[in-house]
Design a protein around this nucleic acid. Structure first.
Length: 922
RNA sequence: GCGCAUGUGGCGUAAUGGUAGCCGCGUCAGACUUAGGAUCUGAUGUCUCAGGACGUGGGGGUUCGAGUCCCUUCAUGCGCACCA
């Protein structure tokens, strides 16, 4: 039998399908294990070789766990809502559902070709009403909840309304947009609309008027993680700050729990650190600075450097601060208005690129609560409205931003730390001994910075000037998108009051065009009869991309349940994801939102685990390797890469399929596109050598390698092995097809252990000790490697083992059969095929993972020469069970060593079995 | 600026503190071939007076012993960034 991978792989896949071998159900007799891949957005371009990297790794792990006797849940689905399908719909009029369905079909066929062990019966699509019903359900639950800080969990808003009716805001400690204060009587006197507005201030899913990232080109708002450096992540269009009414999720209420939870999960340090940064906890103090001559007004500021209060020489307000209007004096009114106007016209991006120091004096003075000194109040856009209170105390000596501002406007700078030279720059470091810090009620002089921070905070609280406060950088997530292709937000407006639509799913209506309406309403404004049966208008915004991906892992546990997102039974069994594999680019998006969503559901006992993903592996990105030709300017002549510097050239991407080993097939190039038909070439050594670059794999760079092509040329098993062989799974690396031949050779070599021509070589002969040693070395190594997620080293071990067995001419079934079991997770098709060849009835997927027997790995007795300290050489003989206590140097090999050892005693011999010996002498 | 990660042959990489470079690619030599982008065998870090010497970005340190641990420095990649 030849190794005919095409025939074998298609037959084996059919076998698995016929036997429905990957179907999983709850089985309380067996321990569960849940392995999940981040589900893909099915783009029109299909999968390239980079996508399966993580899927192959998780597939190996799933199969391994299954062979170990675990009941493994390993599903796959599709993140089907998204911008590309909608953009395509706008351009072509094609319904996004059609595009999406076609793309999903292509993805499924590509995935099936690789031989993954997914249970497709559990597959989900976020755009199915049966799925998004539960996305909407969770949203309504958030709409009906507030975050009680005392209980430290989400609670039904009814609790809050009861409390308001009985006690007003007295005793309420709830996460909110702004602190409110009213009595029970005042609450009862409010109109329903007013009460609704008050509750919006507390709801976890709320309608808020806030500064949002507005992308005019995309015609929608974006969440913070969808914006990078003032540009939209998708499309790269400019993003402006705009005040809009939007649905938001009060993610910030969970900031502390999201932070604390990181300590209990097995994720990489770098991704945990990224999340910690994103959450941005900082401990400090909030304190009040009274405005001179105004009994009714004090500026509330936040600082982490309470120790520097004596160095405050001015105050700064964000331009959007609510204080701005109040502190602006009539004399300064014109200047302030002019400044605010000039700021408004700058986009976020312009502000970021051009960090000029700008600002204006408000006319008012604030009084330093500790020193009693009067300091001017300024307005500047270097202070952010959205963080802390939107107002700061400026300490130019010890903050570089304040320093720049002080220098620019010639404001005083008072150093507070001994030896600090502030003539050129501020001293931001939190170290040194305090000076110039004595006031009527507090003296910090002589303390270290750390002591001073603590002392100042304590004093501020005791003196009633302010309080210790923790601030978070994490903002609430904007949850509205002015888009068609997303989950409808199940809210209607009853007399203008936002009200939950309890009848779910609220299905996405058909519309004639996918553009916003002429009046600027979102696309859903085009839907006919978009209202409740009672005639109340429905919300026109849809949910953002992260909505559908926030709880999908729960749905796989119980995908067809019509009565609940997941049944108690299914959730109680599968609990949470044991291993999650996906890209690190989701660190501040999906991976935060999912954790938040899960914790919210946990608060209500809807799920049993507080964290959704116990272990996370971030696979690296596979980049593309692009090829270039160099066109000489204004000609149709192309010069080889080595000679290009002699000409004025433009590099042009060339399809990697007409390049082999960086040498261009010039005929294929002429045939590639009409404009190259009569191309001329300047060659070197008779060849046209292309330039190369490592870039993102993309259609437009002609560097996409399709897994289907690889499977066609080498088979799925070789592709799987090669992708794992490339290097550590977490590492990003360019795809390089060179080297796949080596892996292909290995598979063929493996095959030839079993078959020589049409002769089956496997016999029932007793295995030799060497045979068993080779096998058990492999089992031990591969078991340890899989546990450590180190697949590249396992494959090296396979190569060594197969080479050894070939050299030993091993034909023993007792060795060649377990070899297949160990190989099955990596190369399942060929393992299954040979498993059947050996006469096994069932599938290799249901075999038992063999255990490594250390007895086969021990050396008999070893004599080795050892050099020590560069001085001595010994011959040491070790018995098979030698250890440090019993081994002894038995003979001295040379006279020099003998002299060195003379008069000394061998104290200790340290042995690493079969390897190194260290001799400690006294 | 802050944080995280990574620096090893021509290349991808490997080494519980214990012979640095396993495995693969590439290269060289040989075998078998009408032929090879097939297969098989062997060699392949650098220098070398052939005994060795030097080698894991640089500099220190701990250790009998350091690619590995500690300090420091440089370089690259990623994340956050006017967050007070």
């Amino acid at each position: 039998m030849e190794y005919n991978y095409k025939e074998i792989e298609s037959r084996i896949r059919q076998y698995w399908k016929d036997k429905d071998i990957y179907r999983v159900d709850i089985d309380t007799e067996r321990p569960k294990y849940y392995v999940l891949d981040m589900f893909p957005y099915p783009s029109g371009a299909g999968l390239h070789v980079g996508h399966p990297l993580g899927y192959i790794a998780s597939d190996i792990f799933s199969r391994y766990k299954r062979l170990q006797g675990f009941n493994v849940l390993h599903p796959m689905g599709f993140d089907a809502y998204g911008l590309p399908a909608e953009q395509y719909a706008i351009q072509t009029g094609q319904h996004p559902e059609i595009t999406t369905r076609e793309n999903i079909a292509r993805y499924i066929s590509q995935l099936e070709n690789i031989g993954f062990c997914y249970d497709w019966s559990r597959s989900i699509r976020t755009c199915d009403p049966g799925f998004y019903k539960w996305t909407q359900w969770a949203f309504l639950k958030m709409f009906g909840s507030y975050y009680d800080r005392k209980a430290d969990r989400a609670m039904p808003v009814e609790k809050l309304t009861e409390h308001f009716a009985a006690h007003g805001t007295e005793g309420v400690d709830a996460a909110c947009t702004k602190e409110l204060s009213f009595t029970a009587a005042e609450w009862s006197a409010m109109t329903p609309k007013e009460q609704s507005d008050v509750l919006m201030n507390y709801r976890i899913a709320y309608l808020g008027n806030s500064m949002v990232n507005w992308c005019p080109k995309l015609g929608t708002v974006l969440a913070n993680d969808e914006v990078s450096e003032g540009l939209s992540v998708r499309g790269g269009y400019p993003v402006e700050q705009k005040e809009m009414w939007q649905w938001c999720l009060r993610v910030s209420a969970y900031a502390e729990r999201l932070l604390q939870g990181l300590d209990r999960i097995d994720w990489s340090d770098s991704i945990k650190e990224t999340q910690r940064n994103w959450i941005g906890r900082s401990e400090g103090a909030e304190m009040r600075f009274a405005i001179d001559g105004r009994d009714d007004l004090a500026l509330e500021i936040f600082t982490t450097r309470a120790d520097t209060v004596f160095g405050v020489t001015f105050m700064v307000l964000a331009p959007e601060s609510k204080y701005v209007d109040e502190v602006t004096t009539p004399e300064q009114r014109a200047a302030v208005d002019a400044y605010l106007d000039s700021i408004k016209h700058r986009t976020e991006r312009e502000r970021m690129i051009d960090r000029r120091v700008t600002g204006v004096f408000s006319g008012s003075y604030a009084i330093n609560p500790l020193s009693g000194k009067k300091v001017p109040v300024w307005i500047s856009d270097y202070v952010l409205a959205g963080y802390g209170t939107g107002a700061i105390m400026a300490v130019p000596a010890h903050d570089s931003r304040d320093y720049a501002f002080a220098r620019h406007f010639d404001l005083p700078i008072i150093p507070l730390i001994e030896g600090a030279d502030v003539s050129e720059q501020s001293m931001d470091a939190k170290e040194g001994i305090m000076i110039n810090s004595e006031g009527p009620s507090l003296n910090l002089n002589g303390l270290t910075v750390k002591e001073a921070i603590a002392a100042a905070k304590k004093h501020i609280e005791e003196a009633g000037i302010g309080r210790v406060k923790v601030n978070y950088r994490l903002r609430d997530a904007i949850f509205s998108r002015q888009r068609y292709w997303g989950e409808p937000i199940p809210v209607c407006y009853v007399d203008g009051i936002p009200t939950a639509c309890e009848n779910l799913p609220l299905e996405l209506p058909e519309i004639d065009k996918y553009l916003p309406t002429e009046t600027g309403e979102p696309p859903l404004g085009r839907a006919k009869n978009w209202c409740t049966p009672e005639g109340w208008p429905l919300e026109l915004n849809t949910m953002p991309g992260f909505a559908g991906s926030s709880a999908y892992y729960l749905r796989y546990m119980d995908p067809h349940n019509a009565d609940a997102l997941v049944s108690k039974e299914a959730n109680g069994y599968w609990r949470s994801v044991d291993l999650y594999v996906g890209g690190s680019e989701h660190a501040t998006g999906h991976l935060i939102y999912s954790r938040f969503w899960n914790k919210f559901l946990y608060d209500y006992g809807e799920v049993v685990e507080d964290e959704p993903f116990r272990k996370l592996i971030n696979q690296g990105m596979i980049q593309g390797r692009s090829n270039f030709v160099y066109r000489i300017k204004d000609t149709n002549t192309y010069v080889s890469a080595g000679l290009k510097d002699q000409y004025d050239t433009t590099p042009i991407h060339v399809d990697i399929n007409i390049v082999r080993d960086d040498v261009l097939d010039t005929d294929a190039f002429r045939a590639w596109r009409p404009e190259f038909a009569d191309a001329e070439f300047i060659l070197e050594d008779g060849k046209y050598v292309c330039g190369t670059a490592v870039e993102k794999m993309s259609k437009s760079m002609f560097n996409v390698v399709n897994p289907d092509d690889m499977i066609d040329r080498y088979g799925a098993d070789t592709l799987r092995l090669y992708e794992m062989f490339l290097g550590p799974i977490e590492q990003s690396k360019p795809w390089d097809t060179h080297g796949i031949d080596g892996v292909f050779r290995f598979v063929k070599k493996l095959w030839s252990l079993y078959w020589k021509g049409d002769t089956l070589l496997v016999t029932d002969t007793e295995p030799t000790r060497d045979n068993l040693k080779s096998l058990h070395k492999l089992i031990k190594k591969v078991t340890a490697d899989i546990e450590a997620f180190s697949f590249n080293t396992s494959i090296a071990a396979f190569m060594i083992c197969v080479n050894e067995l070939a050299q030993q001419k091993c034909t023993s079934r007792a060795v060649l059969e377990p070899l297949l079991v160990v190989l099955a997770p990596f190369a399942p098709h060929v393992a299954e095929e040979l498993w059947h060849t050996l006469g096994n009835d069932g599938s290799v997927c249901d075999a038992r993972w063999p255990e490594a027997n250390d007895d086969y790995l021990k050396e008999d007795s070893v004599t080795m020469a050892v050099s020590f300290n560069g001085k001595a050489r010994f011959n040491i003989t070790l018995a098979a069970d030698a250890d440090a206590a019993t081994a002894e140097a038995t003979a001295l090999a040379d006279p020099a060593a003998a002299r060195w050892l003379e008069g000394k005693t061998v104290r200790k011999v340290i042995v690493v079995p079969g390897r190194i010996v260290n001799i400690v002498v006294g």
